[in-house]
Design a protein around this nucleic acid. Structure first.
Length: 504
RNA sequence: UCCUGCGUAGCUCAGCUGGUUAGAGCAUCUGACUGUUAAUCAGAGGGUCGUUGGUUCGAGCCCAACCGCAGGAGCCA
């Protein structure tokens, strides 16, 4: 048995492929089967003139997603997907599929989500999952090469670490337990045992948010490093993100191409990342400070003008094409081509009009941004569009960050760090140097009104050989969404769990 | 939780100011075609217009409530 992505080694020879029919086209005496085997796609040609009638009729009755075994000769053909074509000599049907729900035409998102178990078979999803896989591999390699030990934190927890976000409550032998929303406190304990550790596992947040950036169940990578201060932590984050993106660029060029990802934009990670204090970031958002001669508010106003112009142009194009398809005697192919264009343009128009509606609000909230507040989605976008690298923002107001973060020299700030991805993808990393002083930490827990008993084990870490240490958390799905430039995180995980979505 | 929009064939959508028998493309089935790339061409079958109630001589279209979905806000990785 041969896989499609290994056909290069079998050129001119006969091979046996097993897979599924992604698509079929036929004309008299010829059947073109687009075979999908998980490793790739390959067109297989069944020619009646060199097959028994029995085998040819099998090929002729194939349907979309039927499972087959195909024996045939590998021919080089530059025009084909993957560069090879199979001349079929024998064919066997495992199962004939009937009425496969996902057809070659467009589908709505609800239908696709209801059929997620089948949607995973389509090309885009295939590419995304392969990139996700490479990202995961790269993450492990990065940390393993640097002597980090993977140590996983528990998923059942007895108390809320950060207290702020909503938790999924569950029953643990008649005791209330929560699904972990972070493993960070456990990570600190493990770092005191091992020096350098990272966790890699699922986390759960019961936020009733329906946005392109939220899942109820998502995978998080949380490294924790003994004897690291905030600067060392930020250096590590930068090196880490660069490593992962470079790995995807090196291993997944065809997947990125299939997704029509603008690879140049990803290559910007090779440059040093922008690093700003929170206070500077606020000045930039409010338009009080320029970046490389660019002002956030003016940039936004220009964008809005450009956007409006584009909307007008697109509306004109839609009208033009709608008039054109009414021309009598126009070929059906050309009508279809124009109908598709119109549908695509209308979809794009919807997005653009949404943006045009949003930008004035963004301008408003950017101008009115108050020092001391956390960034909203629009503030992140306003800031990151001025840079082409990820933006690292550090030294945050203590009031909006968690109790365990170490105070900066000015004690109203903490040594926390957020990393914002470019192209509007927002926060992908959050981290900090941790408070290692027992008294200060105890005081912070009291201030937050958190139950002290629950944190006794955590405070032990400060009683027995407390050291400066830092760590961060990376949301895997948001990273995948950015690298693949997806409109929504729901496509970054095989079976997304989110508000309003538990099946399939 | 709030704001906006949508719900018509298996799927994606059209359906005018409320008016006779509800429309297209894809998918399915039948047939044609020896190089197709979402193949094409001819034909056929396929509908409780989200649910409930109301207005009206008459509702897919108007009104109300509910349900579902999408986008945005808040919150976050």
């Amino acid at each position: 048995m041969t896989f499609i992505n290994q056909l290069a080694t079998s050129e001119g020879r006969s091979v046996t492929l097993r897979g599924w029919v992604a698509n079929k086209r036929s004309s008299k005496g010829l059947v073109f089967i687009m075979l999908r085997d998980g490793s790739g796609l390959c067109q297989c040609v069944a020619d009646a003139s060199n097959l028994t009638q029995e085998v040819f009729s099998l090929a002729d009755k194939l349907t979309q997603e039927s499972s087959v075994e195909i024996v045939g000769t590998v021919n080089r053909d530059e025009r084909q997907v993957g560069g090879y074509e199979i001349q079929v000599s024998d064919l066997r049907i495992y199962q004939l599929a009937r009425d496969y729900p996902i057809t070659k035409k467009a589908h709505g998102i609800e239908f696709l989500m209801d059929n997620r178990h089948l949607w995973l078979r389509s090309r885009r999803q295939w590419a995304i999952m392969r990139i996700r896989n490479q990202i995961i591999q790269a993450i492990h390699r990065f940390f393993q090469e640097r002597g980090f030990v993977q140590m996983d934190s528990p998923i059942f927890t007895g108390n809320a670490a950060e207290g702020t976000t909503t938790l999924f409550e569950t029953d643990f032998y008649d005791e209330k337990a929560y699904l972990a929303q972070t493993g960070q406190l456990y990570g600190e304990a493990m770092a005191m045992a091992m020096g350098l550790i990272y966790t890699f596992g699922p986390t759960f947040r019961a936020e009733k948010s329906k946005t392109r950036r939220h899942l109820s169940e998502f995978w998080m990578i949380e490294p924790e490093m003994a004897f690291y201060d905030l600067d060392m932590c930020m250096d590590l984050i930068e090196e880490f993100l660069r490593y992962v993106v470079e790995a995807v660029l090196a291993t997944c060029p065809s997947e990125l191409e299939l997704l029509e990802r603008d690879v140049e934009k990803l290559e910007h990670v090779r440059k040093p990342f922008a690093r700003l204090t929170y206070t500077d970031a606020v000045k930039i958002i409010r338009g009080e400070k320029d970046v490389n001669g660019r002002n956030s508010l003016k940039t936004l106003e220009n964008d809005l003008d450009e956007l409006r112009q584009r909307i007008e142009d697109m509306q004109a194009e839609v009208e033009e094409r709608e008039a054109k398809i009414k021309t009598p005697g126009l070929k059906k192919g050309e009508i279809n081509f124009n109908l598709n264009k119109i549908a695509r343009l209308k979809n794009e128009l919807k997005d653009l009009e949404e943006s045009a509606k949003n930008i004035p609000q963004w301008l408003e909230s950017a101008r009115a941004f108050e020092h001391g507040n956390d960034f909203g989605g629009s503030d992140e976008t306003v800031l990151t569009r001025l840079f082409d690298t990820p933006v690292i923002v550090y030294n945050w107001p203590a009031d909006i960050k968690a109790f365990y973060m170490k105070r900066a020299n000015d004690s109203s700030f903490v040594k926390g760090v957020d990393v914002l991805a470019p192209e509007g993808y927002g926060e992908i990393v959050g981290g900090s140097e941790r408070e290692e002083n027992l008294e200060l930490l105890t005081q912070r827990i009291q201030e937050e009104g958190l139950p002290m008993e629950a944190f006794e084990w955590y405070l032990d870490l400060r009683r027995y050989g407390s050291v400066p240490h830092s760590g961060f958390g990376l949301g895997l799905e948001r990273l995948v969404a950015w690298i693949c430039k997806l409109p929504h995180v729901r496509e970054t995980i095989p079976f997304p769990r989110m508000y309003g979505r538990l099946f399939p």
